[in-house]
């Protein structure tokens, strides 16, 4: 359960951003969470809500974009979202394919209401 400390880190970043824009109110924080990041999006949301409630930033929404594990086919160069059961290339049927994404844990955007 490290989502609480991740939520705290996120909140600190938002606070720093808010300080750079006096008078602005951050309404939404966008994050990208990959399937292989080891982060549970629901636990992250829950922790974030709990932490935000006690700050001047409330109300502040968290918008989570979930990213699937992605593979690239070495033969035809096709990139695709891979499921646990089948990592074969859906275009040419090649296997094995190489994992090229899905471990993202990124702050992507802030939505801000400016005065």
């Amino acid at each position: 359960m490290h989502e609480l400390s991740l939520a705290q880190t996120l909140l600190e970043t938002v606070e720093a951003e808010a300080r750079r824009r006096p008078g602005a109110h951050v309404v939404t924080v966008g994050v990208r969470v990959g399937e292989l990041s080891g982060v549970d999006p629901e636990a992250l949301s829950f922790s974030f809500e709990a932490l935000v409630a006690d700050t001047a930033l409330a109300p502040l929404a968290l918008a989570i974009e979930r990213c699937p594990r992605r593979h690239r086919c070495p033969r035809c160069d096709f990139t695709f979202a891979a499921t646990d059961s089948d990592f074969a290339c859906p275009r040419c049927g090649s296997t094995p394919t190489r994992c090229v994404g899905g471990d993202e844990l990124e702050l992507t955007f802030l939505e801000v209401e400016e005065p």
Partner: peptide, 14 residues
């Protein structure tokens, strides 16, 4: 409403 693109790792400091 303004959208500010940030694109940074949450664990940037780590």
């Amino acid at each position: 409403m303004t959208r500010i693109v940030v694109e940074q790792k949450v664990l940037k400091e780590n």
